[in-house]
Design a protein around this nucleic acid. Structure first.
Lengths: 123, 123, 123, 123
DNA sequence: GTGGTCTAGACCACC
DNA sequence: GTGGTCTAGACCACT
């Protein structure tokens, strides 16, 4: 489900957070679906439960999941995501696209990539 | 020309590097143009010349500028940029676009943003 | 009449309690009006009657309603509400207003909101 | 500077977080001022540094402070606070004010309280 | 000395 | 069983 890279400069909990977010965005984890329990995922990845808990907390703060004590953690509806995050994503999008255009990538080529993402889930 | 934010988590040299790169990408710094000397820019920003030097070296490694000993540093042709960077940018582009699509932003809206970037330089 | 959110961190009985209290405060439930029976409301919301019972007991302790054995539960006169609750509300009011002022919201703007609440019932 | 209540249902880190936020809002901690180090505050309050760290992290996410690794944590300008928080505060404000009005507190009295908050820092 | 991350292990409340 | 909180202690990178 997830792969960790201990050589990566990013902390483990960020790798877990980003990995889970990607699984949701690509549809690999459906809305409303139950995520593995903190302990289960910690056991699977062979890391401390606290580290998983931290990743889950971060995603809950972003609105990507919600936790019900005693029941588990579940994927949120995508309508519940923090709006501030969307703004930050748009900023990253503009910066990245601007540099790609400068490097000679055609705007049409970028639009084509977006169309591909809409069809088959990205990555 | 550049603004530094000491509250930012990014190291200063990264802020300088990213700021200069953005000036090139947006056309504020033309290809072939001479950049301020390390000492001059250090004086302007009131920071250590070593920090500027480090930013210049990073941009030279990326292919965004080249240095001529005794003459100064100059903006490269955009064809000289490291190809690995372009690949990384495309990866970021896909990831960001995929999440924005998931959050309900229309693909057409993203294409429209790209078209806008092509007209007036971004940001 | 009431909406429950199972993703909410608040227990269900608190959601019922707060929802009913809001209906009284906004005038949707008039003073002296008879509330649905515990069993009827439990059936409507598809939850356990004990949960409704607990919400009713909490509101009775606050003074927002009174129960007549064998007849049902009724909305109290607003004069019957626990004075301690009013003090707690005033504390919350001060804390919230202070932070909003700090964040740059004008005091006049807050007073205007209050005036609006007096006209049309809030929310 | 802060007082903890172990009988309180709120977790310690929330008490620290809310207490510090109040100190900033009331001006007891000025903008730009350096906060006690994680270890120092943990020692003062006789709790684990991790708990303080968690409170600081939460406040940083809200925009109330920023941390510079190796230097310390500092009070942010109030312009940097998350806008979502302001919206949530306004909602709490409306709810609280509406109930107070229902309980017979005059709107003018509430406005007067706000005026008092503007003068002498609240609580 | 600072913040940041991670581990190990414990306890709680709720279901 | 679940998530949530707290402690103790360790290591790292940066200043």
């Amino acid at each position: 489900m997830l792969s960790l890279d201990y050589r990566d400069a990013r902390p483990i909990y960020e790798q877990v957070r980003d990995g889970l977010r990607r699984l949701m965005v690509t549809g690999a984890l459906a809305q409303g679906e139950k995520l593995p329990s903190v302990r289960a995922m910690a056991s699977t990845l062979a890391i401390n439960p606290n580290t998983i808990q931290r990743a889950y907390e971060a995603l809950e703060a972003e609105g990507y999941l919600y936790s019900v004590p005693g029941k588990g953690s579940f994927v949120s509806e995508n309508t519940g995501v923090d709006r501030g995050r969307q703004e930050r994503l748009l900023h990253t999008f503009d910066q990245t696209a601007a540099e790609l255009l400068y490097l000679g990538v055609a705007g049409d080529a970028l639009c084509a990539r977006i169309a591909n993402l809409k069809g088959g889930a990205a990555q």
